[in-house]
Design a protein around this nucleic acid. Structure first.
Length: 115
DNA sequence: GCAGTGACCTCGT
DNA sequence: AACGAGGCCACTG
C-alpha cells in the first residue's frame, strides 16, 4: 500500500483542533465554539477544551483560545495561572476586564480566515 | 458497548 | 444578576 504521509492531515478530532490552534496569529484570540463549528462539530466546544488539555505543555498557543465571553477559563491548566494572561498581554491583546480579553478587538474566526 | 469525564453553551429559577 | 441543571460531543477505561 502507498504510504501517504500528510503532515496536514489528521485522523482524530483532537489533532484537527491542534492544527487550527497552531494557525492562530500572534495577538489574536478565538473561541472554543468557533473552532468546533469550523470543524463541523458545532456542539463539540467541550471536546475542543479536552483537546487543549491534552496539548497543555506543548508548543501550541492554547492561551489564544478563550470561551464565548472572552474569559480565560483554562488559565489554571497552565504552569501558573498568570502565564496565560502574561502571554496574551505580551502579544498585544487588550483585556476588557479581569480574566477577560477584548474579544471584539482581537477575535479570530477560523472559518473566515482559513479556507 | 456502557459509563465517566470535561479549558463549553444555554436556559430556567 | 447569580446559581444550578441539562445537553451536546469526542476520547478513555
Amino acid at each position: 500500500m502507498m504510504s501517504r504521509e500528510e503532515p496536514e492531515a489528521s485522523d482524530s478530532f483532537y489533532e484537527r483542533v491542534w492544527e487550527v490552534v497552531a494557525e492562530i496569529p500572534r495577538g489574536r484570540v478565538t473561541t472554543y465554539g468557533d473552532i468546533a463549528e469550523y470543524l463541523g462539530r458545532r456542539g463539540a466546544a467541550r471536546t475542543v477544551g479536552w483537546a487543549l488539555n491534552e496539548a497543555a505543555g506543548s508548543d501550541l498557543p492554547c492561551h489564544r483560545v478563550v470561551n464565548r465571553n472572552g474569559m480565560l477559563t483554562g488559565k489554571k491548566y497552565f504552569e501558573t495561572p498568570h502565564v496565560m494572561e502574561e502571554r496574551l498581554r505580551s502579544e498585544g491583546v487588550a483585556f476588557a476586564a479581569e480574566n477577560r480579553v477584548d474579544l471584539e478587538a482581537h477575535r479570530w474566526v477560523p472559518s473566515e480566515e482559513l479556507s
